[in-house]
Design a protein around this nucleic acid. Structure first.
Lengths: 196, 196
DNA sequence: GGTAGACTATGACAGTCGTTATAGCCAGGA
DNA sequence: TCCTGGCTATAACGACTGTCATAGTCTACC
């Protein structure tokens, strides 16, 4: 604790914002709440993120996208099935540990109507996060013998299904949907890497 | 136009609220906007829905859940594949017709953190809508020879995947994810109703 | 004609929103 | 010692939030 922990403050705000957005959604989360949730003063958020809420939200989405991608990449070194296992475990932990209150901030940003004009950067970051995850899964599937087209389609299905299942778990206050989805997605992976 | 169209006003408000929630989310949509969006005065919303925003949101979710369930039930009479086809077409139309601005109000409500205390009725309605859709699909799968456990799991996967895919389409401003998901879900249905 | 009840118009309430401005703190280097 | 620059504290801005109360209009029936 001798060294200043100021450099970490910015990071903490981003992580806190991601958590908050994953619970409440982007528009429904105020900058004041994000600041308080990460123990930072309101003034600091505008110091670190001069472009305001939009910039903070964008960095929060990118942070989540990169964090998940990093875990996924590592797990996929043991093959697609292990990668899916880790991907599911990751979301399961988030949902269960927060008692079904938190979910995915990328999804939350994705389903908010953008204002007229150019696509807001936060929405673009959400699209990028989805694409990154899909690419990681598709590459792994191809490397294990999947037909390229099938690999792309299954990768998209996995990301979509997991995102949707997390939402269903929150609504039902149960992780059962995630267990069901897990079984079928694993079955599909086996079918995909060993072309019938 | 001789008869009064007042009885329809309430219905219009509910439908308008569902559309609005599917675009912006529940908390991010104000009662004033919902009223204006359906051409009703603000005072009328509190006349028809004395319990305020919560009641209106709940009815909007139920309305969407029932509407989709009705279409799905009808399409499933031609079998699970036809049912999935119709389910996908339905969401595709919503997403494309609104230029990727609207999605599913049930999902939108499902991912909003409830306040402390009892589960809000809108969230319960979202859970019910998901369950209804799953049951329709699972029943149809069973009726066409699927193993019961597989039927339940595949039904959950279908609902989750479609919901997630709609969100991905909105983020990417493209219906390609829906096409990919469609192909793989159809493949999975064929595999499920003809046990390997 | 008159009256009851369904619906609407209007305005207010206390609170929050995103954002900005200004002034203050408090560490580091000269 | 002073001073510079990163960070914070405080207050304010107009606009918006959910909700309610009141007064008004209009329609349908007796």
């Amino acid at each position: 604790m001798v060294t200043s922990n100021k450099p970490e403050a910015r990071q903490r705000i981003v992580a806190g914002a991601a958590d908050m957005i994953s619970r409440r959604g982007l528009t429904a989360t105020s900058i004041r709440e994000m600041a308080k949730h990460s123990g930072a003063p309101l003034g600091s958020t505008y110091h670190y993120f001069p472009d305001g809420k939009q910039q903070l939200a964008t960095e929060a989405v990118r942070y989540t996208g990169d964090t998940i991608a990093h875990s996924l990449r590592k797990a996929l070194r043991a093959g697609p099935a292990a990668g899916l296992e880790a991907f599911l475990a990751l979301w399961r932990a988030i949902v269960v540990d927060t008692d079904f209150r938190a979910g995915c901030p990328v999804l939350a940003v994705a389903i908010e109507e953008p204002p007229d004009g150019p696509t807001p950067p936060a929405l673009a970051a959400a699209a990028q996060a989805f694409t990154d995850w899909e690419n990681l899964l598709a590459t792994s599937l191809r490397e294990h013998g999947a037909d390229p087209t099938n690999a792309d389609e299954v990768a998209t299905l996995i990301v979509a299904a997991v995102e949707g299942t997390v939402a269903m778990c929150r609504a039902k206050h149960s992780i059962e949907p995630l267990d069901r989805t897990a079984t079928q997605l694993q079955r599909l992976i086996q079918l995909t890497i060993r072309p019938a």
